[in-house]
Every structure is written in structure tokens, then in C-alpha cells.
Design a binder for these strands. Structure first.
Length: 485
RNA sequence: GGCCCCUUGGUCAAGCGGUUAAGACACCGGCCUUUCACGCCGGUAACAGGGGUUCGAGUCCCCUAGGGGUCACCA
């Protein structure tokens, strides 16, 4: 398809949510796979809730995910400005047009009046619809109201016959009877447009060809179409993506743990695994394939392959996927992600080399699901510890021959010529044989002595990286510990 | 409540009138082994319910139920 333009239009009132991230991703994929443009627009007409901080963090998160935009508030473009708060003149122009053509009208009903009417309707169990009281106010009346200093909103004249049908690319035709809608407000009394009006005008003036957004907007779509119609605009294509739900099928919120992209980043998830996981949450090609790089996704992406049913996100699968990427990416990337934290822990002081740090990270990475977990697995390579795993002590330090084993191990450590994993293993196995015990019976106590833990990477690699002197002191320390207890 | 959308294992999902109803995560076994992780092998587990249409229905139609969304001078 030619000349495709899509947009992601968050309102900067908080962090980027994984649901938002996924609709941004689908937009981006659609644009990239069709050689179209991906536009970022900030819907910040609610000046009390919008903030510059939110705007910045949303843009950072999108960038972190690799969802770069072609036009947007920070980089401009020929259809700007890209923040609604800067587009008042545009809205005014179209509002004027509707007013002049008598397709919209000023309404002087106060918010209090309207609320009372709504409450009354509710009590009587009737559906509330605006009465249309101001629909045919005379020019003189309008002038008079304004002269009295009254504030007015602008309402759209909605036809009370016929129907509006949304031809949705994902859901097919969805019909709405026009009688469902009242003359809804398109401009507030402070002259700012309401959401539906701003969206319609922006999507049209920015030449958006496909509106891909969350399903929660499906019910708003006919209203926007009514606006398009009144304005004489041609409607874009619509595609409504289902929502992401919490594990209990309710709407995803903070109480369900991490929901913001930023939190996933801080927890040590990689952008490529988040993108991969999010893409699969609602998009399936029919091919049996779990791991996708963006190039492949771009090649295969089609709106028709997006699921209509809502998806519950499963952090365990995300973690599994993240672990997969963690094992595959360049070591240097993990190292640089970890450096700051390691620095803060005092792990990279004077005598610790980059190389040592890298070797440790590489050794433990396959045990971790997140970047942060790597640090947990690596701790004993950088810090002394003062307690041993309790069950381990019971199993490996309290046997009759425990001391004997550690003394023999100490000898090997002290006398090993090369101190390499291979050679250490050979000597230790030989020693076990001489003592007529299983190699495992030596390995476990030594592991506990060196790490304080019962689970570590292969012992001999751990030894090699730890180095001779540290191994000696730790085994000695363990011997002392056993003697004392 | 009105309107709209959705409904295949615990989760993501394939399926597009005829299949022993894939696969992945999770879970449970086993193998590997030096513990853990990885990897490999195997297992448990699903068409929400009821009516139609059809020789034949997870696939088409209707109803019911459940879930979600939306009905603001929020977006």
C-alpha cells in the first residue's frame, strides 16, 4: 500500500503502559511493513493531568523499545504541531466551520444543570441524553448570553435516524444506531476541543490513513465518524486491537505488579524480549514460531493476523523469553547494563578488572531470567559472605569426613600448577578416588565453602575465575567454621 | 442498565465444514550431570452451555451465560 500514515497518540498523563506499548508496536510494525510513516502525537488537551515529565518518559520508553517515529513533537514534520495543546487554531477553524454551517451549536447549559438532569434520569432508570435545549437558540439569544458573560460549550448536531457503521479491519462491520448518541460536546467552555473532536480533526489534518488503537475506543469511533461526516472529511481505516488484561481478567492496573514499560526496564528485561513478547500477545501468523527479530516481524506483519479476543499477559513467559535473549546477546551489552549497579555495590574497585567482571557475568547469565538476577548470582565473586546455606551446612559440613575433604581440597588448590578448571577437576576427581568417595562428595562441600551456596555454576569454572588465593582463604574459613560448630 | 466487542487447556495460541484438536509458557515425570540453570525426551490438560443448519460443526446461524469496553466540559 502506498502513502500509509499511522500514529500513536498517548495522552501524557502517566507512564507508558504495556498495553500502550503494544498498540504503538502494532502501529509501528504496520508502518514499517508498508513503507509508511509512523507519527507520534501527544494528546495533552487536559492541561491539568498532562505533564512534561510524562511526555518525556513516554518518548524515552518508546525509543528504548526501538519504536522510532518519523514525525513527532520533538522532531517536527510537515503536519505539525504534534501536540494538541499547540493546535488550538486548527480546532477553532473547524469548529467555526461547523457553527457556520449550522452543524454544531453553542450550548449554555451549566455543568450543574446537566449533572442534575443526568442524576434524575439515572434515578428514573432512563438513559440520559442531552435534551437538545440549546439546539435552536436564536442568534440574538446567543449574543445575549455571551454579553451576560455566560460560558458556552459547542455541541454537534447528531442525526436521530440512520446508523453509523465502523468498518473495522480486525473486527469487521460494527453497527451503531445514531439514536444512541446525543448532541455531544465537541468543545469545552474553555474553548478547547474534547477528545473526540480533536482526534478526528488531527487524524484528518495529519493525513492519517489507518487508525490503529485499543478496543476501548471502538465505542467512540461512531462519534468520531459523525464528526468526520459533518466536516465533510473522508474517514480513515480503523483497526481496534483488543486489550491486555490482568491475570484475573480485570483491567490491568498498578495493583497487578509491573505494568509500565519503565518497570520492566528497571527489573532487567531487555527491549527485544519485551517487543517479541508483546507482539505475540495478540498477533499470530499461523507459523509455529516463538522468537522473532524485528526485521522478520516487519516482513510478516499484517493487521488481519491480530486477534480479536483480549489477552492476559503472563510474566512467566516473558521471563522465559528474556532468559533466552540474555543467553544470546553480546556479553558487552550485558556488562554495560550492569556496570552502574556493580559500581554502586563497590564491585568494580581498584583491583577488579573488566575482564574478571565479564567472565563472571558470562558464567552466570544462563541462570538468570533478568539482567538484575545476574547480579544476585554473581555476588560471591565480589564480596565475602558470612553465612552458609543452612541445608548445605547440614548436608556437607556436618559429616564425619567433612574436614578431611576440605583439607584435601585445600591441598589441591594450593598445589595446582595451572589453576585451570580442567586441571582442578582432574586432581579433585583423582583425590576422591583415592579417598574412595564419589567426586560429588568432594564437590559439594567445596562449593559451599567457596560460595556459601548449594547452587552455582560448574564448580571448577567457579574456582578458576575466583582464583587461587580467594579459594584458599575461603576453604580455610570454612574449615574454621566447621571446627567451631 | 443501554449499546458494542470477546469466548479452543492455568496462560499465549494454531485451526478457517471431515485433524488422533498443533505448538509455546507454566506444571509434573525422566535424561544429561557436580548442584542450579540451559538442553533433550515424555506426560496431565481445552473447543463456555443449549438449540439449529449439514451426511458431517471448534469452524456457519440463533439463544443463554460469563468476561471486557463504552455511555464526562478525561483521553
Amino acid at each position: 500500500m502506498k502513502g500509509i500514515r499511522v500514529r500513536f497518540a498517548p495522552s501524557p498523563t502517566g507512564k507508558l503502559h504495556i498495553g500502550g506499548a503494544r498498540t504503538a508496536l502494532f502501529n509501528w510494525l504496520f508502518a514499517r511493513s508498508n513503507k509508511g510513516k509512523f507519527i507520534l502525537r501527544l494528546e495533552d488537551t487536559d492541561l491539568t493531568r498532562s505533564s512534561e515529565d510524562s511526555a518525556r518518559s513516554i518518548m524515552e520508553d518508546l525509543q528504548w523499545l526501538g519504536l522510532n517515529w518519523d514525525e513527532g513533537p520533538d522532531k517536527g514534520g510537515s503536519f505539525g504541531p504534534y501536540r494538541q495543546s499547540e493546535r488550538l487554531p486548527v480546532y477553532r477553524k473547524y469548529l467555526q466551520k461547523l457553527l457556520q454551517e449550522n452543524k454544531a451549536y453553542y450550548c449554555f447549559c451549566s455543568a450543574q444543570e446537566l449533572r442534575a438532569e443526568r442524576e434524575k434520569a439515572q434515578q428514573e432508570k432512563r438513559d440520559y441524553k442531552y435534551s437538545g435545549k440549546c439546539r435552536s437558540l436564536s442568534k440574538n439569544m446567543i449574543k445575549k448570553h455571551f454579553q451576560e458573560g455566560k460560558k458556552a460549550v459547542i455541541r454537534l448536531k447528531v442525526p436521530d435516524t440512520g446508523q453509523t457503521v465502523v468498518d473495522d479491519l480486525i473486527r469487521g462491520k460494527v453497527e451503531f444506531a445514531n439514536t444512541l448518541f446525543d448532541d455531544f460536546i465537541i468543545a469545552k467552555s474553555d474553548e478547547w476541543p474534547t477528545y473526540n473532536f480533536a482526534v478526528a480533526v488531527d487524524d484528518y489534518t495529519m493525513n492519517i490513513t489507518h487508525v490503529i488503537r485499543a478496543e476501548e475506543h471502538l465505542s467512540n469511533t461512531p462519534k468520531q465518524m459523525l464528526i468526520y461526516e459533518a466536516l465533510g472529511f473522508q474517514v480513515p481505516h480503523f483497526a481496534h486491537v483488543s486489550m491486555i488484561l490482568a491475570p484475573d481478567r480485570s483491567k490491568l492496573s498498578k495493583r497487578h505488579g509491573a505494568t509500565a514499560v519503565e518497570e520492566f526496564r528497571n527489573e532487567g528485561y531487555l527491549p527485544e524480549s519485551l517487543v517479541n513478547y508483546l507482539a505475540l500477545l495478540g498477533w499470530a501468523t499461523g507459523k509455529d514460531k516463538d522468537f522473532w527479530d524485528v526485521e522478520e516481524m516487519i516482513r510478516k506483519f499484517r493487521l488481519e493476523d491480530i486477534s480479536r479476543s483480549p489477552a492476559i499477559y503472563d510474566k512467566k513467559k516473558l521471563s522465559w523469553m528474556n532468559g533466552h535473549y540474555l543467553r544470546r546477546i553480546n556479553l558487552s551489552r550485558i556488562v554495560s547494563l550492569l556496570e552502574k549497579e556493580a559500581q554502586a555495590k563497590g564491585w568494580l574497585e581498584k583491583d577488579v578488572s573488566q575482564e574478571y567482571f565479564g567472565r563472571v557475568v558470562d558464567l552466570v547469565r544462563s541462570r538468570a531470567k533478568t539482567v538484575n538476577e545476574i547480579l544476585d548470582h554473581a555476588a560471591y565473586f565480589f564480596e565475602e559472605f558470612d553465612s552458609y546455606d543452612e541445608k548445605g551446612v547440614e548436608k556437607y559440613f556436618c559429616k564425619d569426613n567433612s574436614l578431611d575433604i576440605l583439607y584435601k581440597a585445600l591441598e589441591i588448590i594450593e598445589e595446582s600448577p595451572s589453576f585451570t578448571a580442567g586441571e582442578l577437576e582432574e586432581s579433585l576427581r583423582l583425590q576422591a578416588e583415592k579417598m574412595n568417595i564419589k567426586a560429588a562428595d568432594m564437590i559439594h562441600p567445596v562449593r559451599l565453602a567457596l560460595s556459601g551456596r548449594t547452587a552455582t555454576p560448574g564448580l571448577f569454572e567457579v574456582m578458576e575465575i575466583l582464583g587461587r588465593s580467594r579459594c584458599i582463604s575461603r576453604v580455610k574459613k570454612a574449615i574454621e567454621y566447621i571446627k567451631k560448630h
